[in-house]
Amino acid sequence: MRTSVFTIVFTTIMIWGCGGAQQRAEAPETSDSALLKQEEVHGAEVKEIALNNPLDLAMIDEGQKIYDMKCSSCHKLTEERLVGPGWAGVTKKRKPVWIMNMITNVDMMLAEDAEAQKLLELCLVRMPNQNISEKEARSIIEMMRKNDGEK
């Protein structure tokens, strides 16, 4: 039962994800100056990350704040799985680039990455887009490294 519900949800999301807007007519000009532009931070693939040694304290602090607001509902800092996996040991298990993409580019990861797909089968809730920028995600990694005992 759950699997079928999941399949429906997943399929729906996939279809929705592919449903691009196709304009049928000439696009009239509009004044952008009057309209606030929205940045879309989600969905760009991160290919490389340089790590600091020792850890950057300011980044840890920022990462902790984001964790409290946007991540802690589902991820514990222990090994215990809540909605998503616990974070203890995550920086040993996963490459930083993998973690980054899981945060900022989850659609690609769930479509292509076998490890990410395994996690979805286990947790049954898609890792959500929490509107976290690349820079913010990098701070989260710093905080995860501290959680894993790095200095």
Partner: peptide
């Protein structure tokens, strides 16, 4: 609502 994804 802590979600930050469209349509959730």
């Amino acid at each position: 609502n802590l979600e930050q994804d469209w349509d959730v």
